[in-house]
């Protein structure tokens, strides 16, 4: 899928934005398969807001946002769900796991959510968890896992579904350099396998991926 932003201004940030330039707000931006985009921005400039706009969680903006050829606010709930099941995947900054489900169940849910055959067999959960060194907490309720562990579970959850665009909001914020490297490698290979594009927002510069585009908010 492709996401096109045209003249998007978040209503809550409207006054702030008029004072400073931005490469995303009030301009035309394009995200799609195959391109790796890094959006670097300090706190409070609307990173999470942008991720929520892109993923269709919020609509308090002016301008138009297209998912493929259709304006996002013109899509009905079932069409949005179909995109989220098979075209767009996400890692939220606040992770958004079901605290009372185990890590495995949280991941499994996203694997089996689309009505078609799952993209991966369930053995892949174990493999990815082993790669990211969270296999020991797979059967533990997410609520009692550490943030670092939860973040890796959220990353695996995003990777077990089919997608052509992966959106991540500070995905390595709770990981040490070593674990972040491993997670990035896994994400990179999964994106390449699907020919998918990714959009990553963060506070700092990083060299986890071969970004095609750098944008500042």
């Amino acid at each position: 899928m492709e996401i096109t932003l045209e003249n998007i201004i978040p209503i809550p940030l409207k006054e702030n934005l008029e004072k400073r330039p931005s490469q995303v707000w009030q301009s035309k931006v394009h995200f799609g398969p195959g391109t790796k985009v890094k959006i670097k921005a300090p706190s409070g400039t609307g990173k999470t807001t942008l991720v929520h706009f892109l993923y269709g969680l919020r609509a308090d903006y002016t301008g138009t946002l297209h998912w493929d050829t259709k304006a996002l606010n013109k899509l009905d709930a079932d069409q949005v769900a179909r995109y989220r099941q098979s075209e767009i995947s996400v890692v939220f900054q606040d992770l958004r796991l079901f605290a009372h489900l185990t890590a495995r169940e949280n991941i499994e849910l996203n694997r089996v959510l689309q009505p078609k055959e799952p993209y991966y067999p369930d053995t892949v959960i174990q493999e990815m968890a082993t790669t990211l060194q969270v296999d020991h907490i797979l059967d533990q309720a997410c609520g009692i896992c550490s943030y670092g562990e939860q973040q890796r579970v959220a990353i695996i959850r995003a990777l077990v579904q089919p997608f052509s665009l992966l959106i991540m909001d500070e995905p390595f914020s709770h990981l040490d350099q070593n674990n972040a490297q491993k997670a990035a490698a896994l994400i990179d290979s999964e994106c390449d396998k699907r020919g998918a594009g990714l959009v990553l927002t963060d506070l700092e510069e990083d060299s986890f991926f071969n970004y095609n585009t750098y944008l500042s908010l």
């Binding site: 079932d78 769900a81 995109y83 989220r84 099941q85 958004r96 849910l109 959510l113």
Partner: peptide, 12 residues
């Protein structure tokens, strides 16, 4: 709400 966020359709 979280299920819908993750991609569960209202129909499901």
């Amino acid at each position: 709400r979280l299920l819908v966020t993750l991609g569960a359709s209202p129909g499901q």
